[in-house]
Amino acid sequence: MSNGPHAKLAELGLTLPEVVPPVASYVPAVQSGQHVYVSGQLPMADGKLLATGKVGNGVSAEQAKDLAQRCGLNALAAIDSLVGLENVVKVVKLTGFVASAPGFTGQPGVINGASDLFGAVFGEAGRHARSAVGVAELPLDAPVEVEVIVEVS
């Protein structure tokens, strides 16, 4: 059995979804040189947001962490469709946005949902620089959004 990223996803009980179609004028991912830049990914499944609202008011931090994992999975699907996950050399940077209720300061824990996924799929190559930012609103009233930059071979 392979040790590649697809095998790791299977071990985690996860499968790559279809690439989420853009909701505006952009593409899901673009390659420039040795890097792939993935557009902000929302927690979409089967064309629908899995949740809406603010983290800390209607969306729990634990639920938001799961939603961030889904954002990460959608990002992996975008990378796979463009260059293939087996060509990822390093996850370089992850930026996570959390639609936060006033007083909610647990953004880093929420974005761990995506960070932990990349670590589980890519091992040491999945360790990355990161920002976890609280925002007032996200597109479509999504609770979380994740964008990622990866180095590819």
Rank of each mutant, 00 (worst) to 15 (best):
G113V: 06
S131G: 12
F97D: 03
V89L: 00
M1P: 15
E147I: 03
I149M: 02
V36Y: 03
G4R: 06
L76D: 10
A114W: 01
Q41P: 07
A142Q: 10
G13I: 12
L49I: 13
G96R: 02
L12A: 01
A114C: 04
L67W: 00
E124K: 10
G113S: 12
T15D: 10
S60M: 11
G56A: 09
Q63I: 02
E86H: 02
E124R: 08
M44W: 13
T95K: 09
V20T: 09
F97H: 05
N57G: 14
M1A: 14
G109R: 14
G103W: 07
A10Q: 04
V98G: 12
V150N: 04
A129W: 15
S115W: 07
N74T: 11
S32C: 03
I149F: 00
V98A: 09
V150I: 05
G56L: 06
F104T: 00
K90A: 02
V27H: 00
V144A: 03
P139E: 06
H128A: 08
G134P: 15
M44I: 08
V133A: 12
E137Q: 11
G126H: 05
M1R: 15
T15N: 10
F118A: 04
Q69C: 07
Q34T: 15
G84A: 03
Q41R: 13
G47V: 05
N87P: 08
M44T: 06
A136P: 02
T105M: 13
L82H: 09
V19Q: 05
P43T: 07
R130K: 14
D116R: 13
G33K: 14
S25W: 00
V152A: 08
E145C: 10
L14A: 01
G40Y: 03
P28M: 00
A136S: 12
Q41T: 10
P143V: 01
D80K: 04
E145M: 13
A132C: 15
L85F: 03
M44R: 05
V38D: 10
K65R: 06
H35F: 04
V55G: 06
G134N: 14
